[in-house]
Design a protein around this nucleic acid. Structure first.
Lengths: 158, 158
DNA sequence: CCTAAGAAGTTGAATTGTGAACTAGTCTTG
DNA sequence: CAAGACTAGTTCACAATTCAACTTCTTAGG
């Protein structure tokens, strides 16, 4: 039986902040995606390249990559297949666990990364970072960190 | 010819804030979506219901709804078709412009809205609003507003 | 060791999203 | 008022995402 608790609607301030947050996310995602498009990459592609390029031996296990990028195994599998066809990564068997696979950054993937990164960073600056004062930035991070924490706790991932 | 300008990479602080921001968005979207799922709605559905329910006569022109929700015409068209099949909205011709259509909230749509809204609001509170101090909230809004502004300027919508 | 439970990944069908081409109505202007 | 340019919206073909089923390997327990 539901306890008949009155709904705590959002105050105007809350509502406003919430909607701004939603809007920024959407517009920002759209814009970054668009800025990446000329290079034939999506944000997803890019994020995977970043993860691999920052990893030991330029490789990661599929599951680790999936959870690092917050995607389902299935989605990642399709994604890697596409990127493999584009020559950005390749799959490689794992010695120690024969069920496992690595996604490995190829030379072409690395090269692409090097070429695209500056543009992407510029885009992130232009549309986000440079629009915030340094103080606002640290405040933002400080405010958001616990939320990330909280949400990570709510596991039950894609 | 590109002017050979050195890339201004992100500082650690910037990088950290940026990644937190990305992460929060993704986890939050996922969580809200998940909390809405038991009611058979997606965030997209919900947002459209909100827009319609707040509009004069519970109706909006397709294009206006598309730009309000930042979707392409095409996507909205499909979306409304689905929601029409679910009985949440219906299409209605526009007298004054015979090319035009309204998406109109049905009684069932309104009813659904009333039933779902409290849960959604609770979800937004639990996973976002209530995790921020009131000051942090206003700061957040103040920081993000100009970004929204900036991005809206960059029109070239989906 | 042998079996059952569980983890790593893939596959394929069904949904949903994208982009360009298309229909139909409106507006402008010569 | 007719032609061309433009706007509203849909449709079609294709790409990306989801979800459940499936294969293969690993590991715990008895």
């Amino acid at each position: 039986m539901e306890t008949e608790t009155a709904t705590r609607w959002l105050t105007d301030t809350e509502q406003c902040a919430w909607r701004t947050h939603l809007e920024v996310n959407r517009l920002l995602t759209y814009q970054l995606e668009k800025d990446l498009q000329p290079f034939g990459l999506t944000m997803n592609d890019y994020e995977i390249l970043v993860n691999l390029s920052e990893s030991e031996d330029l490789r990661m296990r599929m599951s680790d990559l999936a959870s690092a990028t917050l995607q389902s195994k299935s989605r990642l599998s399709h994604q890697i297949t596409r990127m493999e066809n584009a020559g950005l990564v390749r799959r490689e068997n794992c010695e120690s666990d024969r069920r496992g696979l690595f996604a490995v950054l190829t030379d072409h993937g690395m090269e692409t990364m090097r070429k695209v990164a500056p543009h992407h960073v510029a885009s992130v600056r232009r549309h986000f970072i440079d629009l915030l004062s340094p103080e606002a930035l640290t405040e933002l991070d400080k405010a958001l960190k616990p939320i990330a924490e909280h949400l990570r706790g709510h596991r039950g991932r894609p």
